[in-house]
Structures are given as C-alpha cells and as structure tokens.
Design a protein around this nucleic acid. Sequence first.
DNA 1: GACGGTGAGACACCCGGCGTCTTATCGTCT
DNA 2: AGACGATAAGACGCCGGGTGTCTCACCGTC
Lengths: 205, 205
Amino acid sequence: MAGDLEAQVLDATKGCIERWGVERFTIADVCRAACCSRATLYRAFPGGRETLLEALRVRELETFLTTVRLHTDGATDLEDLIVRCMTVATSELRHDEQLATMLAAAPGEVATQLTVDGVPRIVRLATTYFTPLLEQFVDRDRALELVELLVRVVISYFLSPSSRYDFARAEDARDFVRLHVLSTTPTASTTSNTTNTTHDRSTRP
Amino acid sequence: MAGDLEAQVLDATKGCIERWGVERFTIADVCRAACCSRATLYRAFPGGRETLLEALRVRELETFLTTVRLHTDGATDLEDLIVRCMTVATSELRHDEQLATMLAAAPGEVATQLTVDGVPRIVRLATTYFTPLLEQFVDRDRALELVELLVRVVISYFLSPSSRYDFARAEDARDFVRLHVLSTTPTASTTSNTTNTTHDRSTRP
DNA sequence: GACGGTGAGACACCCGGCGTCTTATCGTCT
DNA sequence: AGACGATAAGACGCCGGGTGTCTCACCGTC
C-alpha cells in the first residue's frame, strides 16, 4: 500500500510537470492531484521537492531502460546486443514527447541532467540493467566499462546528432560499434563474427 | 511605435498565459518573450500585472466583438441582427480554444470574469460596438437595454447550456428573441415581420 | 484499547517575484 | 555637436506564498 502511495504521488508529479513545467509546479499542486495531504507526501518523500524529483527521474529512467531491454531479447552475439541497445535507446529518446518539450523549453536543464548531474545515476541504473546481459559474452569488468561507454556515447549523439552516425539506424550503430567499441582488426568483414575483443584482461573464473 | 510596443507586450503576455497559466506566468517571462526590459513594460502598463491583464482582456474582447460584428453585415431587420449576434457570439465562445482550456483549468476564475468582474467591461464595450447597429431599428435607450440584456443572456447560456435553447442554432435564437426579447404577441407567425415591440416607451425625438 | 497511517493546520524561514527608482547607453532630431 | 526621449540594466525594499517541519486529531485495523 505504501508503494501504491508512492506511485500515486509520482504520477501526480509527472502530470503537474507536464502541465506547469518543472520549475513552476508546486508541492500543493502534487498533493491536490494525488489526493493526499502535504504531510503524507513529505512522509513518503523526506526532503520534499528534490527527493520527489529524484525519485521521479529514477522511475522514468527505469521504465526507459525496461523498454530498451525488452527489445534485446533475440540478441545472439555481443555486437547484435549492443547495436540493439543503441538503436532502441536512441529512437526512444527521439520519440519521447515530454523530453522534446523540456528540451525546447529548458535545454540547459535537460542537458545538465543528461551530461553532468544525471550521468552517475544513469550509468548506475544502466549497469544493473545491462551488465547481466553483456556478461553472457564478456567478463564483468569489460561489461561495466562497455555499459558506461555506451551510455555516454548514446547521450552525446542524441543531444548533438552527428552527420556521420545516426544511431537510430542499425547499420550506423554497427559501424560505430565495430570501429570504436569492439575494435578488433578494422578490416573485419560483414560476417557475423562473435569475436571477443583481444583486450580481455581477466578470464571468467 | 508606442502602439507597436503595447501590442508586442500583449502578444507576449498572451503567449505566457497559454504556456504557464494566468496565475503562474511572470512579468519577467513576458519581458523575455517581448524582448523588452521590465522598466519598459511598467512604463507601458503602469500598475504592472493587473493593468497588463486588464489591457489584454480588453484587447481580446475587442477582437471578439469585431469578429461578431463582421457577421452582421447583411442584417435586414432587428430580429435578424440580434439572432446573428447571438449565434455568432455563442459559437465563437464555444470554439475558443484558450477559453476552453481556462474553463477546464480554472472554472471559477473564468466564471467570475464572465459574470461578476468582467460584466461591466463587456457591457460597456459591447454597447459601443453594437448600439450603432441597433439604432438603425430602435431608439437609443432601447438599444442600450437590448445590448446589456443580450450580453447577459448569451453569457449565461454559454456558461450553463440549457436543454431548451442552443443559441448556436439560429432557430433557437430566433424563438428566444421573439418570446423574450422582442416580445410582441406570442402568436407571431414565421413571417419575417420587422415589428417593433409594443413596449417602446419613448418615440425617437 | 493500542497502533500505524493519514489529514488538517500552525509555524518560521526565506526565496523570488513585484513595483519603483536610478543610471548609462543608444538613436534621433535640431 | 549637443539636446532629448526612449530603453536596458540593475539595485532596492517589500511582501506574498511556497517550503519543510511539527503537532494534534481522527480513522480503521488488529
């Protein structure tokens, strides 16, 4: 029942942000929308506004990562898995209506959240979501490194699209991955080779 | 050039209200949108926020009344003129997107503006817009009375639609006008009779 | 009857928007 | 060039209202 209250308040917060913007909504607004008193809200989210926003960001990020992970089911090898993550994540980001609105209204705020303040959280959550998947193909340390790298790359190319790579296109993502992520011999042909990299420092125990 | 500034600021105000709502927008927001400093805004609208809102309400009302008056061009008699005003005004009110938004978000605010605070202004402006037209058919005093009555009736039936009359339909409006506004003998047939009412107290001097 | 959860409200704090004023700067006109 | 009006930028005090915390009363459950 406590989780229900949390979800209720977070839903209300999301609605208030959509209606009035992040900097204009009010705790009282959220309470009205969630049909609860301020005391209850502060009891569920000690610290108030900042805690609330942080919890909402975490929840939104979790549903985002869940969506991405759903599209990696049939991945057969490491390259395929990574490419799928990149394409799905990129197109999801591009089609996020609320994100577009916020990018138009307050680009600085979004950029900060995606490049400075938010990166540790994003990397942490993405790690818990995708490391187990990557560990099917590489060892743990390599998986951790890859997740962090991919998070940073996807975010960067989303915020400032390159004319060279469009990660919503699987071919572009694959080219990029072969060249800069799983960099074996750059003459690798198009045959689907599940080659591990030559940099594996520790074999799985 | 001063009028240009006024229009610029009022446009900006309208945009800010659409984006953030009447109670959430800020003078600084308007200045940003209007590309002027706060000093300039306060010089153009002494008294600040309230003066600004009042000026915007007047301007919006003026464009509304202008629109209504545009649709009364071919009016041949008094009944036709009044019916046209009622139908056009009602459907204009119903199709006003911003008004609908505000009615959904803050019904009390809109109702107050349309029934208490705003009525004197609306009656005053509507009088200057429509009295000359009505004076083609009735004397001045009767015209003043009619305009005020029609304003109140249209507003009331817009805010709380009746199952009996839908003033967007010309027939309903005509029925109402014959029965309660230009009340001659209630057995009046459908022939377009330009009868003045029997209640004319003062003949034109 | 004890207890956890909730609503309602009081309280002090303080941020930020408001309205006013002053100063510097720019363009225009004489 | 000099005078003048309009504007931008900023400082200033004021104050409303949002914030975060606390207390108390109430309700349903066990």
